[in-house]
Amino acid sequence: MAPTSEVSGNLTFTSFDVVPVLDLQDGGVVHARAGKQARAGKRADYRPIATPFGPPHDPPAIARALLGITFSPAMYIADLDAILGRGHNFDLCQALADALPGTDLWIDAGFANLDDCAFWLPLGATLVIGSETIASLEDWKAICGSLGRNLVLSLDFDEQGLRGPTELMSEPDLWPDRVILMSLGRVGTETGPDLDLLGKVVASAGDRHVYVAGGVATRDDVATVQEAGARGVLVATALHSGAIGQKEIAALRGGRRP
C-alpha cells in the first residue's frame, strides 16, 4: 500500500509513521532486555542503553538521532520511574521538549487518573494513557471529559488479554483519535507484531489512527503492519540495532524524505 502524504507548514509527512521510543530511568536512557516489561515491574531488567546514537546520559542527543532516522513528527517517551511509582523524570522531559521544538512528545508516565495527568499538563505534551494503569473506567471517562480527544490510549495486552478495564475493547466509542496496540510480551523481542490482534483493533477503530508497539523487527514487519491498516509503529530495538534504518524508512515512505 503506497503511503499518501500530508503537508503541514514546511514539512511533508506520509500517512504512516515510524515513531521512535525513548525509555527514561534515573535521568538517562535505558533499554529493555528481550521479553521484559517495564509496567510489569521488571525495572531491574532495564539497563543503560548501548547505542551508536549517543551516551545514555544524553537523551537529547539520542532523541535527535532517532528523529533524524525516522523523519517522525512524534516521539514516544516512557518515564519508567513514574510508571513504577518511584519518582519521575519531568525535568528531563522538559529538557527534551526544549531540545526538540516542533516534535509532538507522547509521554507515558503511568497515568491512573486525572490527578496524575494534571501534574504533567504544564509540559504541553500529548499524554499516553495505558489501559493497565487506568484505575477504573470512570477514571478514563474523567480524563477524556477534562482533556478531550488529544490523548493517546495504549491498549496493553499480555498473554491473558487486555490489561485494564475490559470495556475499553468492547466499547471502541470510548477510544480517542489515536490508539496504540501494545503487545507487552513482545517488547524488546523482535519477534514480529501480533497481526491477528491488530486486525481486530483496526476493524474496531473506524477512522482512528492505530499504532503498533512490541515485536517490530524488520522493514517487512513495518510494511505488513502498514498493509494491515495501521497508521504507524513504535520502534526502539530495531532502530538501535540498525535492523531498521534511514534507507528502509525512506523506502517505506515512497523514497521521499520530508
Score class of each variant (00 low, 15 high):
Gly255Arg: 00
Gln94Leu: 15
Ala74Ser: 13
Val212Ile: 01
Val30Ser: 05
Val187Leu: 06
Leu147Tyr: 06
Gly68Gln: 03
Arg178Thr: 10
Ile107Gln: 02
Ala223His: 05
Lys42Asp: 15
Leu181Met: 09
Arg86Trp: 07
Gln160Asp: 08
Gly102Glu: 05
Pro48Met: 00
Ser136Ala: 08
Asn113Phe: 08
Ala34Gly: 12
Gly188Ser: 05
Val179Trp: 06
Ser146Gly: 10
Asp194Met: 11
Ala61Asn: 06
Asn10Pro: 14
Cys117Asp: 05
Gly85Ile: 04
Pro48Gln: 01
Arg86Pro: 08
Met75Lys: 01
His57Arg: 15
Thr70Cys: 10
Gln94Cys: 11
Val201Ala: 06
Val233Ser: 07
Thr166Gln: 15
Ala78Ser: 09
Ile249Cys: 01
Gly85Glu: 07
Asp58Asn: 09
Gly110Leu: 09
Ala44Phe: 14
Pro52Thr: 01
Met1Pro: 11
Ala65Ile: 06
Ser136Met: 03
Gly185Asp: 02
Val21Met: 07
Thr224Asn: 09
Pro176Phe: 06
Asn89Phe: 02
Cys144Val: 13
Ile134Cys: 12
Val210Gly: 08
Ala109Ile: 08
Asn10Tyr: 15
Cys117Met: 13
Met1Arg: 15
Leu198Arg: 06
Arg257Gly: 10
Ala38Pro: 00
Val212Leu: 00
Met169Trp: 11
Arg186Ala: 00
Ala217Val: 03
Ala99Ile: 08
Ser183Lys: 13
Pro20Cys: 03
Ile180Ser: 04
Met75Ser: 07
Leu197Lys: 13
Glu171Gln: 14
Ala40His: 12
Asp98Leu: 12
Gly229Ile: 04
Cys144Tyr: 12
Thr224Val: 07
Ala95Gly: 10
Asp58Trp: 11
Ile180Gln: 04
Asp139Cys: 13
Phe13Asp: 04
Leu155Glu: 01
Phe16Trp: 06
Glu248Gln: 10
Val187Pro: 03
Ala205Pro: 05
Val30Met: 04
Leu174Arg: 01
His31Phe: 12
Ser5Glu: 14
Gly232Thr: 08
Val29Pro: 12
Ala95Lys: 10
Arg208Gln: 00
Ala250Leu: 14
Pro59Ser: 03
Ala50Met: 02
Lys42Ile: 13
Ala223Gln: 10
Ala74Met: 14
Phe90Trp: 15
Leu137Ile: 03
Gln94Arg: 14
Ala109Glu: 00
Gly41Cys: 08
Ala118Trp: 13
Glu171Ser: 14
Leu84Ser: 11
Val128His: 02
Pro258Lys: 11
Lys36His: 15
Thr133Gly: 09
Phe53Lys: 07
Val216Ala: 02
Ala99Glu: 06
Asp207Ile: 09
Pro258Arg: 09
Ala118Thr: 13
Gln246Met: 15
Ser72Asp: 02
Gly87Trp: 12
Val222Asp: 03
Glu248Trp: 06
Asn89Ser: 02
Thr70Arg: 06
Thr224Ser: 09
Asp177Val: 10
Arg33Trp: 12
Trp120Ile: 09
Gln160Ala: 14
Phe111Asp: 01
Glu132Ser: 08
Leu92Ser: 04
Gly232Tyr: 02
Ala135Met: 12
Trp106Glu: 10
Asn113Tyr: 11
Arg231Asp: 07
Arg231Ile: 13
Gly41Thr: 03
Gly185Trp: 09
